[in-house]
Computed example of a mutant assay.
Amino acid sequence: MTKTTVAGDAHSIPADDKTLRALSTSDLAGIDITLADVVGTVEGAYRTLAAGRSDNPRKLTVKPEDGHSVSYAMLGRDGSRNVVAIKTSYKHGLDKGREEQHYYTALTLYDDVTGLPVAMMDCGRIGSLRTPAVSALLARECARPGARSALVIGTGTQGRLALPFLLTTVPDLDRLMLFGTHPEGITAVREQLSAHFPDRDVEIVTDLRAAAADADIIVATAGVHTPAAVEAGWLKPGALSILVGHGLAPSTLHRADRVVATSEAQMKVTGTDMADEEGNLPAVDTEFPPVIAGITAGRRSAQERIFAYNSGLVVTDIALGHRFAQLALDQGLGVQVPLWQ
Rank of each mutant, 00 (worst) to 15 (best):
L178E: 13
L178S: 10
G180V: 07
T181W: 00
P183K: 07
G185I: 04
I186R: 07
I186F: 08
T187G: 10
R190E: 15
R190P: 01
R190K: 15
Q192H: 14
S194Y: 08
S194I: 03
S194L: 09
F197Y: 15
P198K: 08
P198H: 10
P198Q: 10
D201Q: 14
V202E: 09
E203T: 15
I204S: 09
T206D: 15
D207F: 07
L208R: 03
A210F: 03
A212V: 05
D214N: 13
D214R: 13
I217W: 05
I218K: 00
T221N: 13
A222L: 08
A222E: 11
A222R: 01
A222F: 03
G223F: 03
V224Q: 12
V224M: 12
H225L: 13
P227N: 11
A228W: 04
V230K: 00
W234Y: 06
W234N: 02
K236G: 15
I242C: 04
L243Y: 00
V244A: 04
V244R: 01
L248N: 04
S251I: 00
S251P: 02
T252G: 01
L253T: 02
H254G: 07
H254Q: 12
H254I: 11
R255S: 13
R255W: 01
A256G: 03
D257R: 02
A261D: 05
T262Q: 03
S263I: 01
S263W: 02
A265F: 01
A265V: 11
Q266Y: 05
V269A: 07
V269S: 05
V269K: 06
T272R: 15
D273P: 01
D273I: 09
M274W: 14
M274S: 04
E277N: 13
E278P: 01
E278L: 11
G279I: 10
G279K: 07
P282T: 08
V284D: 04
V284W: 03
D285W: 04
D285V: 08
E287I: 11
P289A: 14
P289D: 12
P290I: 10
A293S: 13
A297P: 05
G298K: 00
G298A: 10
R299W: 11
